[in-house]
Structure formats: C-alpha cells, structure tokens
Design a protein around this nucleic acid. Structure first.
Lengths: 347, 347
DNA sequence: CTGTTAGCGCCTTCAT
DNA sequence: ATGAAGGCGCTAACAG
C-alpha cells in the first residue's frame, strides 16, 4: 500500500533502466522528450514519489534546515519561524524544528539530532540558560553552516542576524524627548543578556546625545515582567524628583507600568509617557495603545535564512569572515507617548 | 572536516567489522560489554555521529513527523506546535514544519514534500482555503498515519483532535446567565468554518437549556475582527430592547465589543457582561480583563501527537476505526463578566 | 559473541 | 540517447 514504487518499477514498466528513469525525472539534458513524457506518465500512474532519503544518502544533501528556538509558544519566535519557513520553502529546503525550552542541554541535544539528520544548515536563537558555548564551537569546527539570530554570541565567530537594540532604545528615548518629556526613566532587563544590555546603553546614549545627565536613580533593574513594571513605577514615585516618562525594556514591563500609572490616576500621555519594546500583539489593543519598537521578526527570519543559504552554497566563505546582519528597529508611536497633536492624528 | 566518520572507520580502528560496531552502538544484546565500551570510546574519539539518512533508508523509518499549520505567526498554532514538538521529542521523533498560509495549494505541496521525505506520520490543521480534500484522501489511501487537529473534516475518515466548541460556547453563555445577565447576544464568525458554526449552536443550546427563547435580532454576523465587535454593539444598541451581555465568538471581536462599550460609558461588568473565546494573550492585560474560553492548545498538540504515535505503532487500527478526541474547553472568568462578589475575588 | 553478505533507492561515472 | 555497475552508510539475516 505505502509508497513502494521505485524508479526500478517505472523502468520495468517501460522496458528501460533505472538510470534512464532517474535522468528523465530530473530533467537531464540528453534524454529524449518522448522518454521524459512517457516516464512522467508512468510515474504518476504508479503514484511514484521520489525517495528523498535514498536521494540524500547518495547525494550528501538533505535539503533540510535545522532551526532551534527557545519555544514556539513565544510569539516572537513563531513569527521569526514564519519568516524562515516561508523562504526556506522557496529555496527548496524543509525546516526541522527543535525547541530548547531555554535550556542548554536541550539545545545541545537539538544540535546533535541535527548532526545525525545531516541537515544542510542550522539556525539557532540561543537559550537563556546557555553559558557554556562548547556545543556551538563543535558545530563550527565541523564546518556545518550555521547562523545565529536574535540571541547571539559574537565571540564564537558565527554569522548572525540581530536587530539593533541599541538603536531601538535610542529611538524610543529620543522619541520621548521629542514629545517634550524631560525626566526619562528606564526599567531594564537582565543584563547578562546582550539585548537588554544594549537597550540600556541605547537609552543612556540618547540622553547623552541630548546632553542630559544620566541619573542612576532613574534606572530600575527589572526582570521582564508585568510585576517589575509596576515595581519600577513605585520605585520612581518614591523619589524626591520623579520622572515624567519611562522607556521600558520590553512590552510586558511597559504593560505593568501603564497599569500602575492608571492605578495612580496619572494621565497618559499628557502627564506621563511610556514606550515599550517588542511590538507584542496586545500593544495596539490596550488602553492607551502602547508605543513600542518593532523587532522586524519576519525580516529577521528571512535574512537569517538567506544568509544560511549563502553559506551552504559557498562553504569557502564560511571560514573567511564573520558576517553580522543588523536590522533596523522600527519605532511605533501610539497613544501612550504621543503627546503632540500631529502624532496623535497618525494613530 | 565534515562528519565523514562512519562505522567502517570505527571498525577499522578496532580491527573488527561494521556489523559489530553497529550492534554495539545500538546496544544490541549479545555484544560483550567490553566491546561496547571500546566502540563507544572510539566513536567519540572519532567524532562519530550516526547517519540517520542511511539508517532511515535501511530501516524504512525516518522518525520524522510532518506538521502542517496555516501559519507559525498565529499564536494559537505556535502554541499547539509547542505541545507537539515537546512530546515528539520524548518519543524520539523530529518535527518537520510546513506552513500552508491558509492556501490549499501550499497544503498539498506540504503533503507531497512529506511523502518524499518519507515521514513516519503527519499532523495537519486544515487551511481556510481548502474546499477540495482530495490531497488528504490520497494520504489516507496510501495508508500513511495522519491526524487532523483543530481545523478538521469528519468526512475524510481521518482521526482528529479538536476542542468542543459547542461546549465552550455553552459554558460561556451559561456563565453569563449565572451572573444574572438576562438578554444575552452573540456575535458570530464565518459559518462555513465548523468551529464558529458550533459556537453559535452552543450559544443557542445554552439559551434553550435555560428555556430562553432565541431572539434572531440578538445574533449578529461578524467576521472575526475588532471592527465587527464594535459594529455588533452598535447594531444591538439600535434595537428597541438591547441585550445586557454579549458572547463573542472570539477574543478580538470581544475586544471590539469592550472598546465600543467603553466609548458609550457603559459599566462593565455591572451593566453589561462580555465573554470572548480563545484566551488570547492580551485578554488578561486589558481593562477590564476579558473573560474567555481557553482552547487547551498545548494539550491539543500533545493529544494529536500521542494519537499519531499510536497509529504509527499499530497500523492495523488505522483503517479500523475513526477516532476523534474532543478536548474540554476551559471557561476563564475575568472581570468583563464577573458580576458576583465571589467570582470577582477569584481574580 | 562476532564476521559475512546483501540490499534499502537513488545517482553518477563510464561505456556504448 | 541509453545501459551497466558500483556505492552512499547502515542494518539484518545468516552463518559460524
């Protein structure tokens, strides 16, 4: 019942040889058109489907791309995977998906199963729990094409695609300044993750660029949660001189900020401005709608895949240079920070 | 550089034969422990990694599961895939991901590429654009294990996993009644999709079970959007006798409802109750928090995979019966409908 | 307990 | 334009 039909079956049917059938099916030059047609016909009559496994074994190419993400449940990664799969498909690659669950051991297991599956290339967004990177070094040493995205590590000599967190934070902070807010605070995220570190730097950079002194009391160390947004607000309002705007390191923190501000009957955006980071889905549905920075998820997936395909097709360049693609973040102004009339109109 | 090491290399290293090495590596009974240890050692020394491609060709099992979803960008599917991949992994399967983009042609292409890849089994959530199901009949005829989830079709004789939309709608509607709302309206979704059809039926069923006459003017035909939620509210408030609660067929519609009600300064939940469906992420972050029905996404993924693994392991049952797993939806009461004190406390 | 042999389905020289 | 033959790496049946 199953597939069973092989090129040998077709060859027998047509009184020819497997070699000829193989050539006809791959549209080889030097096979008569008539042959090709008759082979096609017999193939579909017999429900033939090329056995990729055998083909891969022979050719050494599986046309598989292994993708490791922390979790498919996280919107951001779903979105990136969407971008990856769409383009992979166009290039004739299939996507093998693996979740690390933010755990280094799973991440390593994923890489190993990709090795066993003989994938043509690998895309990874590194797990939070990864401190020791030897498994990536191993891949690199084996010369298997690999590209990191979003959660990366520059010391491995592996190509990567990220968005410019510094710039995103810079834009967000400058936007608040442009809206006339004067004391701008920041609620940060875990600093051992480069993304959040860079956002803090971007915030500071924007202040410095505008000759505003950085006030350490206006930087609250959060942990990427609604709760830490609320706590940040409480902390800031206990200060002798509280801020009038907050740039939160990501949208859930910003959500907590909004919620605590509403609790305190503070008018947004008139009295207080808020900007988040990530452009989570809920941002445009809450009240007020949340200004934020878009991370270009789909584009990230596409770029990562394009880069990987380039590596696969041209392994010589693999060891020659480390390429790093930095995508531009996109500031999205919504009601939580749009104090001026013009911008309000835009939304 | 690449993988290259084969069992033959290990055999040569140890002055034995590939067969012995193969057996040692798969922990075959009837191989001395000493052999096993020496083989393990040599294998890791030579950076050996089993070539799954060759192994698959020989054994006929790829340990691959093909999964087709409309889009990884949609939260719901990301979540289901999370459930699928986690469990697949435990069973020793890898997940091949494919997106139909709600398009029948892509869906068929996905199935074909799965056939070519010789996956051991297939999971599909059917695309919106699929009207002709011949590609699924083909898979079924070939006897390849397949299970549908969420977007299913009962006429194909294919096993499936869904949640009970009727029951979810029933629960939501009864919940509103229990909160003392008396005229309950419904904003529906496209009726050619079974899920939304069933939710309408569930709404009607709950009313009938409580001997409440169904008033057709209280059923507004929406199209799954924030906009249609707003329009529904406008429609209802133009009635001579408007409702005091709405069960919306999904959360975005409910969001539109909330937003329009707030616009009209209607107090929620005191004057008006709202329940959505899907338990989208934003529901617990908006004001008021949105009551909704959870679709058990992760459980759905797990069940679908468990069922598939069962089919793979026992192909005889494949043709004998059509199994349909119906998961229980979970009512989530939040502030948009929690009028009584007790329930308010829970949240 | 281990070695020998053969073949999974395909593709690719080499030969005709 | 087509055939013949061998091998990708692994495993399983059959010996010993």
């Amino acid at each position: 019942m199953q597939y069973k039909t092989t090129i040998a079956d077709i060859a027998r049917e047509l009184n020819t040889t497997p070699a000829t059938v193989s050539r006809a099916l791959s549209n080889h030059p030097g096979i008569s058109d008539q042959r090709k047609r008759s082979v096609q016909l017999a193939a579909s009559k017999l429900n033939y489907k090329r056995n990729k496994v055998a083909s891969s074994l022979r050719s050494g190419k599986t046309h598989l791309i292994g993708v490791i993400i922390p979790s498919a449940e996280i919107n951001f990664f779903g979105s990136v995977v969407h971008g990856i799969e769409s383009i992979a498909n166009i290039h004739g690659y299939n996507v093998l998906l693996y979740q690390s669950n933010e755990n280094r051991d799973y991440e390593e297991k994923g890489l190993e199963s990709f090795l066993a599956a003989r994938v043509d290339g690998i895309l990874v967004s590194i797990a939070k729990g990864t401190i020791d990177y030897s498994h990536f070094r191993d891949i690199k040493k084996r010369g298997i094409p690999i590209v990191l995205f979003d959660r990366t590590n520059d010391d491995l000599g592996i190509d990567s695609v990220v968005i410019d967190d510094y710039k995103g934070a810079f834009l967000a902070t400058e936007h608040l300044l442009s809206q006339g807010y004067t004391r701008i605070a920041h609620i940060s995220g875990p600093q051992h993750l480069k993304n959040f570190y860079d956002r803090l730097k971007g915030y500071m950079g924007a202040l410095q660029a505008n000759r505003i002194e950085i006030d350490p009391s206006l930087i609250y160390n959060g942990n990427i949660s609604i709760e830490s947004g609320k706590q940040g607000v409480c902390h800031f309002f206990n200060l002798p001189n509280p801020p009038d705007a907050i740039f939160a390191t990501e949208d859930f923190t910003a959500l907590g900020v909004l919620s605590e501000l509403k609790e305190r009957n503070i008018k947004i955006p008139d009295e207080f401005g808020v900007v988040g980071f990530a452009n989570e889905l809920f941002g445009e549905h809450i009240t007020p709608t949340l200004s934020t920075v878009d991370q270009q998820t789909i584009q990230m997936g596409r770029s990562a895949l394009d880069l990987l395909v380039e590596l696969i097709g041209n392994k010589e360049i693999y060891t020659q240079r480390q390429q790093k693609i930095v995508l531009d973040p996109l500031l999205i102004c919504r009601n939580s920070s749009a104090r001026t009339r013009e911008i309000n109109k835009l939304n």
